[in-house]
């Protein structure tokens, strides 16, 4: 149950609350460059979502199996050269950036070849975007987020598993698609507007992006509310394990929760 809540929250957070484009500013280049027409935006979004999932799988696997201290493969290899205890502390995270960027660019290459060979129709619709994706920050950003949640945690028990990592990547990609499609829809209409000459093109797109970001800010805090709503009442009670807070000064949603406990 807790796992499910975690997954839902990671998904929601990546897709809308902390949208990759509008909150973390990754993938701005295609957001401005490829958002002229809706069909192009959809193609780009699909390509990114596809590649980001593959890259996330690769980077999670490599980070857990090779890079972090005590990872099975690196400590196995190091075991031939040094003592077992020393081998378990081999820390290769300094190589992580290089490893990620290479896994991204090679997966882009393979995806391109595969799609061109076996799905020519699909390749026609979004194949042209594939080479551009290597330098899309959104993908490296997803890898880095996964890394910080695998290698950067204090207790190994808090480290993300593959399911969480893939959820982040997939929904991050969906969030990117969402942002870029909304933007392209607006831009198609914007072409008919009387925009002051110096603002035509990127400038007005950025200002509109700002207003979009403002709209997406409205989602902030949804995740903590959702977590509260999804956690069964007895678990809330267990988690609080101190007496429930007095009801007088609590906002409505929490009051409901506590009523739930007392019932």
């Amino acid at each position: 149950m807790n796992y499910l809540i975690d997954i839902v929250l990671i998904a929601l957070s990546a897709a809308v609350i902390n949208n990759f484009v509008l909150y973390y500013f990754v993938g701005i280049c295609p957001f401005i460059g490829v958002s002229r027409r809706v069909d192009m935006a959809v193609g780009m979004g699909c390509a990114v979502t596809f590649v980001i999932s593959i890259a996330a799988f690769l980077s999670w696997t490599i980070t857990t199996m090779v890079l972090i201290p005590g990872a099975p493969i690196s400590s196995f290899i190091a075991g031939f050269f040094v003592s077992k205890e020393a081998a378990a502390t081999v820390d290769l995270t300094v190589l992580s950036y290089i490893v990620y960027i290479f896994s991204i660019s090679s997966s882009v290459q393979f995806v391109e070849m595969y799609v061109r060979k076996f799905f020519p129709a699909l390749y026609k619709s979004f194949g042209v975007f594939l080479p551009l994706i290597t330098t899309n920050c959104a993908i490296l950003f997803a890898c880095l987020t996964i890394m910080s949640n695998v290698a950067g945690v204090e207790n190994p028990a808090d480290a993300w598993d593959l399911g969480r990592s893939l959820t982040l990547a997939l929904f991050g990609g969906i969030g990117f698609t969402l942002a870029i499609v909304i933007m392209s829809g607006i831009r198609e209409d914007l072409d008919l507007c009387d925009v002051p000459e110096p603002f035509k093109g990127a400038a007005i797109t950025l200002v509109v992006g700002g207003i979009l970001a403002l709209a997406f800010m409205g989602f902030t805090g949804v995740d903590s509310g959702l977590r509260k709503a999804m956690t069964p009442a007895e678990e809330v009670a267990m988690e609080m394990s101190v007496e429930p807070i007095q009801t007088a000064m609590i906002e409505p949603n929490l009051q409901q929760q506590i009523r739930g406990i007392n019932d």
């Binding site: 007005i204 797109t205 950025l206 992006g209 700002g210 970001a213």
Partner: peptide, 10 residues
């Protein structure tokens, strides 16, 4: 974040 977009745009 919105301030970043708007400032750069302007």
């Amino acid at each position: 974040p919105p301030g970043a977009f708007i400032t750069l745009g302007l």
